[in-house]
Amino acid sequence: MKVLVTGGAGFIGSHIVDALLDSHYEVVVVDNLVTGHIKNIHPSVRFYQLDVRRDLDDLFGKEKPDYVIHQAGQVSVSQSLIDPLYDCEENIIGTLSILQACVRHHVKKMVFASTAAIYGNPVYLPVDEGHPLHPISFYGLTKWHAEKCIQLFSEAHQLDYTILRYANVYGPRQDARGEAGAIAIFIEKVIKGERPVLFGDGKQTRDFVYVKDVARANVAALTNGNQEILNVGTGQESSLEEVIGQLGEISGKNIQPILSPERAGDIRSSVLNNERLQLKLNRFPFYSLKDGLVETVKFYEQEFLTGLRG
C-alpha cells in the first residue's frame, strides 16, 4: 500500500514517514520546504518539492497513492494573526486542492492533521471532541474550516477520513525557533548554558504529547477510526514549571528560568481527553513526559555537538 504524506519533510511529518516505513508502507513525500528540511527526508522515499496549493493531478496520476496523510500547512498561531490570508491559503485552499486530487484519483482515505487550537479557551477539562469550538486565532479557525471541507467532501464523494486534533507536540526535529516548540526552545537554552524564559508564573499547563505517539496515531488511523474526529494527546496535564524541573533532572543542571509577564491571549490550562482515540485506534501506551524528554534531550545534544564539530 502506498501513502502520500504532505509536509513529510517537517517535524511531525518526517516522524510519520519513519513510522510508515517501519510498518512496511510505500511512502511518497510532498513538501515545499518552507518549514521542512531536506535532511528530514528518509532516503528510501520519493520526494516532490511542490506546494499543495497547486494542481496535483500529475503527481497523483503518476504515484497513485492508496492513502493520503495531510500534514502540510501553516502552523504558527502568531503568524496567522499577522497574515491571515496566507494562513487561509495554506490551510484551507491547500486542503481543498488535496481533497480534489483524492477524489479524482480514487484515494481510499485521508488522514488530516488538525489542532486543539480549534477549541479555544477550554470551558471544561479535560477537553473532549464534543467540547464547544471557539478558536481564538486564524490558525484554529482555518483548521476548523478545513475539517468542515473534509466532511463535506466525504458526504459528496464518499471519501473516507480521520481527523486528528493534536495537543502540544514535542520531540526530535522540532524547530527551536518556532513558536510551537516551547520544549525545543527550553532544551536549546539548557544545552547552551542559558536561562530559559517562562512567560507568567510557569504554572500554566499543557498536554505535551511525544511526536512518535502522534506518528503512531497517524499510521493506525489509516485502517481505523473511519469518519472520526479524534484528540491526540496523553490526557495528562503538565505545567511548564514541571517541564523545566524534569529537564534539570535529565541534564543534571540547576535551571533557573527567567520569569516574564504573561502573554495576552495565552491559554492558562489545557489537556485533551484521549479516550475516544484509544477506543477507535486500538489502545496503545503513550510515552511518559520524562521518557519523551530524555529522547528529545539526547537528540538536541547530538545536534549541538555536530554543530560544534562542523
Rank of each mutant, 00 (worst) to 15 (best):
E26M: 09
G310N: 14
G202R: 15
N273M: 08
S97W: 10
I69A: 07
I136M: 08
A221Y: 13
V209D: 10
A101E: 02
P126V: 11
I183P: 02
L33G: 02
G140S: 11
Q49I: 10
V127C: 05
T306M: 04
A117M: 10
K203M: 14
R216N: 10
L247R: 01
F153Q: 09
F138H: 08
G73C: 10
L50W: 00
G248T: 11
A117Y: 11
V111F: 15
S238M: 00
G248L: 09
I41M: 03
H15R: 12
Y119N: 04
S114D: 08
S288V: 07
Q71K: 06
R263M: 13
L277H: 01
L56K: 12
G235I: 15
R173T: 10
Q227R: 15
E129C: 10
K143C: 03
P65S: 11
I16V: 14
I255G: 14
L279H: 12
L152G: 12
L247S: 05
Q174R: 10
N121E: 13
L240H: 15
I163F: 02
H15W: 11
V107Y: 02
K109I: 05
N231W: 08
K39C: 12
L152A: 14
Q278R: 15
P285T: 11
S251F: 04
E275L: 13
V297S: 00
K64V: 00
K203F: 11
H15P: 01
